[in-house]
């Protein structure tokens, strides 16, 4: 578990907010509104985009060419957000996203990054022993598949377009979206039909 903040950090936040409020830089209403807006983003958005790409070739093409436009088309406001890039898994290549320098993450379509994504262990090991990291999720790639680790260092935020698993023939987009987890959108897991 992520440890709770230290008392001196809690006190610093209180003093900092008090100073900002006193100077009229922010209001409590703005903070509450921002928290609510950030809470509203979740991996379900990314999952819907993937499910649509699996069932709509034109949308898949857009998603891979311009992730931000595809997010907008899915109802996500990308104004002021970093551009979204989407990397497609194939029979030959599997992508795994990490940010070794900080915690870059496609928050617009996945929400808050989970604790493990921000952890020192993940950041250190994903570029050094990525198959070992995947094994901790129970994910084992076939030998012939190239594992491509994407270290998110700069202006883009990266999401994985996983392969549609066998056994999902005839599923509608909602049912398909239900098997696309956050872990699959980062690349530590694969979607499974059952």
């Amino acid at each position: 578990m992520a440890a709770p903040p230290r008392p001196d950090s809690v006190a610093l936040l209180d003093r900092f907010v008090a100073a900002l409020l006193a100077r009229g830089v922010v209001t409590e209403a703005e903070i509450a509104e921002q928290v609510a807006r950030t809470d509203a983003a979740s991996p379900e958005i990314g999952a819907r985009m993937v499910a649509r790409a699996w069932t709509d070739p034109a949308y898949r093409e857009l998603l891979l060419r311009d992730g931000s436009a595809a997010a907008e088309a899915a109802g996500v406001s990308m104004a002021g957000m970093p551009p979204l890039g989407v990397l497609e898994d194939t029979d030959r290549v599997h992508h795994l996203v990490v940010c070794t320098l900080c915690s870059c993450y496609p928050r617009a379509v996945l929400g808050y990054p989970p604790h493990w994504y921000k952890s020192s262990a993940y950041r250190a090991r994903a570029v050094r022993d990525p198959r070992g990291v995947l094994a901790e999720w129970g994910t084992v790639l076939p030998d012939h598949v190239e594992l491509r680790v994407v270290d998110s260092t700069a202006d883009y935020r990266w999401m994985v377009l996983p392969q549609r698993p066998a056994g999902t023939e005839g599923w509608d987009a909602a049912r398909l979206a239900s098997i696309v987890t956050r872990d699959a959108l980062v690349g530590v897991a694969l979607p499974k039909a059952g």
């Binding site: 709770p4 936040l13 903070i31 262990a121």
Partner: peptide, 28 residues
């Protein structure tokens, strides 16, 4: 931290929890 040896043998904590109230306030 990419490749940092000090974390080479540290398992990744499978903690999916969203940020606590403190974190959300700082984030906002």
């Amino acid at each position: 931290l990419g490749g940092a040896p000090r974390f080479r043998c540290t398992p990744v904590e499978p903690d999916d929890a969203p940020p606590d109230a403190f974190g959300k306030r700082v984030d906002a």
